[in-house]
């Protein structure tokens, strides 16, 4: 167990105690000594962090290190085997209705004949039992959905079946679906995956705009930090079963990452400002959170 934390600076206040929610600007997500174990295998352990409300945080790290599992812990879908986690001032899972979630996905089934607006609408009232009755509530739902669609810039294509849309268009719609109820916390699992460079930049800027304008706390899992690097307030770097949290300039350094990996790693900065991590050891093939259930 190495409860690591990058050297202070603009770091969030260290919350030593695990007691109940503190009023005012309590961190959106807090964790202490968090550990996830599958059977006899520890995925990660000793994770301490505090994520301030309204900030944009990236969860980084090599494939299979347990980044998606981290989001599932925050959602309350995955239990911790040790430690604690508090989400929006309550134990994980309690405030689920205040969280918007975009899971990792390839794309919608191409033959799916359902319009984009219908997919967004599911995020608004898809969990209600019974059929919608035409009336005030139904009109309210339509305007709310139209607002979310406009917010992500999808008005032009949201009336078409999702299966016909491109990856970037689909990604905007699922972000709108996650936002339509006005969540306080937005969790995105590799939303830039399978997008071309132009769309990666556009979706990254969109997420940052939502974070700033709406004050939504954003946690985004990414395997490449570069498309979102200019917008990040904080990163959580998972590797070798442990985590480091801090600002990007604190964490993505040769010293910090070498300490985290327990092996010499070099962080290079390309002439265009992009960061490249060289020499990071691949995790054992066994360490794949995607197959662990």
């Amino acid at each position: 167990m190495r409860p690591e934390r990058a050297p202070a600076g603009g770091d969030p206040p260290v919350t030593g105690a695990a007691e109940g929610p503190s009023p005012g600007r309590a961190p959106a997500v807090r964790a202490g000594g968090a550990e996830v174990r599958f059977a006899d295998r520890v995925l990660w352990s000793g994770v301490d962090l505090a994520i301030e409300p309204g900030t944009f945080t990236a969860i980084l790290g090599p494939n299979g290190v347990g980044k998606s599992t981290f989001l599932k812990v925050v959602l309350g879908l995955q239990r911790l085997s040790a430690g604690w986690v508090e989400v929006l001032g309550a134990p994980a899972g309690r405030e689920r209705h205040r969280i918007g979630y975009v899971p990792q996905r390839k794309s919608f089934d191409q033959s799916l004949r359902l319009r984009g607006v219908d997919v967004v609408r599911l995020g608004f009232d898809g969990r209600r039992w019974g059929v919608p009755v035409p009336g005030t509530r139904s009109r309210h739902a339509r305007t709310t959905v139209a607002e979310a669609v406009a917010l992500v810039g999808a008005t032009g294509f949201a009336g078409r079946p999702v299966g016909d849309l491109s990856g970037g268009e689909q990604q905007r719609l699922v972000v709108a679906q996650a936002l339509v109820r006005g969540p306080d916390l937005l969790l995105l699992d590799e939303p830039l995956d399978n997008l071309d460079l132009a769309n990666q930049g556009a979706v990254a800027r969109l997420v940052q705009r939502i974070c700033r304008e709406r004050g939504v706390t954003v946690m985004m899992v990414a395997h490449d930090v570069n498309p979102i690097l200019p917008y990040l307030d904080q990163v959580v770097y998972l590797a070798a079963g442990h985590a480091v949290a801090g600002t990007p300039s604190e964490v993505i350094t040769t010293e910090t990452l070498s300490g985290l990996y327990g092996a010499p790693v070099e962080v290079l900065r390309a002439s265009d400002g992009r960061l490249v991590v060289v020499g990071a050891p691949e995790p054992p093939a066994l360490h794949s959170d995607r197959h662990a259930r």
Partner: peptide
């Protein structure tokens, strides 16, 4: 349409 998100929403 969206089993993963539905499950995350508690359905």
């Amino acid at each position: 349409v969206d089993p993963e998100v539905a499950a995350a929403a508690g359905l």
